[in-house]
Amino acid sequence: MMSSDLPAYRVRVSSRARHVRIQVSAEEGVIVVLPQTVDPASVPALLWKKKAWLDRTLSQFEGLQHQPPLATQETSPTLICLRAINQQFYITYHKDANPSLHIHTLGNRLLLRGHVTHYFLVKQTLQRWLTEQAHLHLPPWLETVSKEISLKHFKTIIRGQRTRWASCSQRQTISLNHKLLFLPPHLVRYVFLHELVHLVHFNHSPRFWTLLTHFESNCRSLDQELRRAGHYVPAWAERR
């Protein structure tokens, strides 16, 4: 069924429906669900009221269609290991007609529901979840280390930097990469110490290393280990 300038759509009459619903998915396109009391002839007028939203939503699916499906791209994870906090999360995927993707946490299990067959959406959803976990765990941990060595910073920001584990600004704001959660705890602590010492020496001068060595005698070795730590980070967590 079509009306000029409207996208193709199908009408589904449901005895359970109490209100008109418009569903959009990559697999089925536009479906209008009608209660039995609503005349199907009214559908074009209803769709015209939602045309801007329909055009915007359908254009998003056009972009997804140019991406290879999950089977030809990287494989979505079934297990996430957050070494920094000694936690593992098992992932279950449930595909339904929802064009978006939602994540639910059930203890140490994650349930992803919706358009799970596209790696790009899975990746974005898991990265948002990772950022939430980082907000939950990393700032309190940094605060504890800060108190231990009596170096106080102003603010903590969680980001997803591509090339840095963390950074410290001259305004005493420390930015932490959410990917730190994949590292072993001793490396995360070293990153915290490194950035906190930058509050005193905003460089990598000999005085910086002297102070850092005062707090961590093995800092040079840890610095080299951190440079090789990228292998801990799974592909889905990388922003490209």
Rank of each mutant, 00 (worst) to 15 (best):
P35G: 13
I80M: 01
T125D: 05
F192E: 15
E238T: 11
L106P: 00
G160M: 06
W165P: 02
A166C: 04
S76F: 02
H178I: 05
H118C: 09
K123F: 05
L110G: 07
W209Y: 13
L47W: 00
P7M: 03
V191S: 04
F61D: 06
R56F: 03
P185L: 04
Q133N: 14
V38K: 03
Q23L: 00
R113K: 11
R171D: 12
C168R: 01
K51H: 09
L6M: 04
L211Y: 10
L106C: 04
H102L: 08
E225K: 15
E195R: 09
T78M: 09
S100K: 06
S146K: 10
W209N: 05
C81W: 04
T117D: 13
N98K: 04
Q73W: 12
E216V: 14
H214V: 10
A41V: 07
F202D: 05
L183D: 07
C219F: 03
T105Q: 15
T117S: 09
K147F: 09
T72P: 02
L82K: 07
R16L: 09
H66A: 15
P35A: 14
H204R: 07
R162V: 15
L79P: 05
V32W: 02
K51S: 13
G107V: 04
T57P: 00
L183Y: 03
H118N: 11
S42C: 08
L70C: 11
S42I: 13
R128K: 14
I149N: 03
N86A: 11
P184H: 03
E74N: 15
K179Q: 12
R83T: 11
L130Y: 06
M2Q: 15
N98E: 00
R239Y: 09
P40D: 02
V122G: 01
F208I: 05
A229T: 09
